[in-house]
Design a protein around this nucleic acid. Sequence first.
DNA 1: AATGAATGAGGTTTCATTCAT
DNA 2: GATGAATGAAACCTCATTCAT
Lengths: 201, 201, 201, 201
Amino acid sequence: MTDKSSSKRDIILDAAVRVFAEKGYYSSRTLDISTEAGVAYGSLYHYFSSKDEILLSIFRERWHVLLDRMDQINQTISEPGEKILAIIDFIFRSYQHNSDMMKVLIMDVPRHSQFYSPENWKVYNAFLKNLADVFREGQEQGIYCQGISPLIASYIIYGAVDMTIRQYVYNPEFNHEDFPIEQAKEQIVQMLKQGFSKREA
Amino acid sequence: MTDKSSSKRDIILDAAVRVFAEKGYYSSRTLDISTEAGVAYGSLYHYFSSKDEILLSIFRERWHVLLDRMDQINQTISEPGEKILAIIDFIFRSYQHNSDMMKVLIMDVPRHSQFYSPENWKVYNAFLKNLADVFREGQEQGIYCQGISPLIASYIIYGAVDMTIRQYVYNPEFNHEDFPIEQAKEQIVQMLKQGFSKREA
Amino acid sequence: MTDKSSSKRDIILDAAVRVFAEKGYYSSRTLDISTEAGVAYGSLYHYFSSKDEILLSIFRERWHVLLDRMDQINQTISEPGEKILAIIDFIFRSYQHNSDMMKVLIMDVPRHSQFYSPENWKVYNAFLKNLADVFREGQEQGIYCQGISPLIASYIIYGAVDMTIRQYVYNPEFNHEDFPIEQAKEQIVQMLKQGFSKREA
Amino acid sequence: MTDKSSSKRDIILDAAVRVFAEKGYYSSRTLDISTEAGVAYGSLYHYFSSKDEILLSIFRERWHVLLDRMDQINQTISEPGEKILAIIDFIFRSYQHNSDMMKVLIMDVPRHSQFYSPENWKVYNAFLKNLADVFREGQEQGIYCQGISPLIASYIIYGAVDMTIRQYVYNPEFNHEDFPIEQAKEQIVQMLKQGFSKREA
DNA sequence: AATGAATGAGGTTTCATTCAT
DNA sequence: GATGAATGAAACCTCATTCAT
């Protein structure tokens, strides 16, 4: 019974992700979500108290998946450069496999007023904090240059990756065949490696 | 279009920017805009055909200001490295002086379904194209390495800058006194310079 | 209908009385009733066909308790004045011991549209009819004055008592310590006695 | 303009009184009210913030009419017995001419949870207070007996009148032709007069 | 041009009731 | 009998837009 009902909750959440990704949170109707999920109108309100709550649940529950996999990377890989590579790889793969989810997490969640609670920001920032920690590790090991704050480094890394993927996802002028996303990833990794490396005296 | 009416139109547009920046497009009421502008309820419809039209007008008319100033930079400065520096400087200053406008252009405009017309994307992308062109110039002059596509380079530059500023604007955990934005800018510029520079054999 | 099930039915009915008394019929949820009764959500529909049916059952089954005890008074006491005294006493005690029930019977039942069937009114009025009959008895015995219709007399008696108790139950300005309800009852009884007594020629 | 718009507000309020009187507050739809008033659905929300607010406005604005006319009686008539007679007369006439309003004020307003604020009770009780004051006056002039508290006297008077009228208004068994309401009023007045009069030593 | 009262389609949410387990 | 997840009709309310003044 628990198994079944918990899966229904997930069905609704997954449907909401697809609907929000397509039309945006505010243009999505609760009816659209229930139809997409294949459940009755009122069932949404068995599992969530409101439409707002659905969006915030997506953030809270799905974002943790990202964090958990970052922990895994941290424990499996030791070399900082390799870690950053793995993280970038992971972000790219997340977008490729869950582009709807990423659209929602990037475009809808941060635009929602109820999102701005200290707890949410803490969770939201944990990702960047993690990235900064890996960079600091690299600095301590003498791999990365000292002149850059780990916080700013994390912004550069994530900003570069995020912007690139956003263009792939949203920009209709982008030709995916002429310029495969794998190639973009390689170029970004190379550039970051050189940009962060310790400068010669 | 007399002087008086065009200024009233701008008053409304500026008010809309402030309101959209604070609450987001969908949570903003037309009443909020007219109140903020200090004009009557129905006056909005003398100057704009709909609420959508207000948002699109903001994009069309204000985005061009950005493009115009980029043209200016292009004509005044010749050295590609200096140009990129000036552009980054300009983006940072734009955020600092017009953070409301930037919030709207970044968060609200791209989330609006009517925005996605080919013409709009063309205008939207002109900014990045310009950045890419400057990078290509640098490559041709042998300043920047060949291994990176100008397009990707523009994403890296803009992504890094955008992400950083977004944290400054939205992140409540950010301490502006401990970490002044000017310092962030310096570090980004240094990193990009090194990351893009021609590699030694 | 086993003993167990009939007791569960009563548990639900008693819970409904408490819930209706507190929030009123329309503001009460069936969930509130099942929670208050400590039974499962759907169990209500094993015993009652609808929420309406619960309210009408309260009326039908609990109102008869009042009527039965009035019959008892009629059979035990013979003097009309004593009877009226006993009835007033009984109404006051009913409120004091079952104020929730009385609230429901006075405020919710008569406001419910389905209540207005001839049968229900007949039952509802039986109480007043009884009171009128006792008064008529007193008139026939020469105790009460002829100028008042027994029907009107019953309204005066019940109206005075009902109004007083309602103030005690609902009026927050009422100070129960300065003015004990027993004293109110005494004064009403005295007044009614004198008001109804046969006038001297 | 003011005249017109203020009358529209009253049109809505009067329509709401009729609708609430017929179906009760909770069974009345806001659509019923706008239809009855002959205005557009949304116009209700120009003048009132919610359905609740409509009910409370009826109470606040219409109840004062009652209080004002009681003041008038107080100023025009000096003899306490005459005053009580006039008040009873006035209550009876209020019911006869505004029975819808009285239904709402008696049945719907006090059953509404938001009604129970101290300010509302104060206004609600002012009517009874006035009645009690007249009775006290009569006691001081030696017309009424000392043994009854003015408060209780007001409950008896109002309770008797209210109960009687309620039967006339709601009770379908009541035959208005056999028993005209004027006659009921006469009997009540006579009974109260004798019941309250000073007792002979 | 300017106003703001008026409109009503369409949104989110509630909640009595059903029914498979 | 007992359960509570599931249902969906219908409620209240919002708010972009219109239009008479």
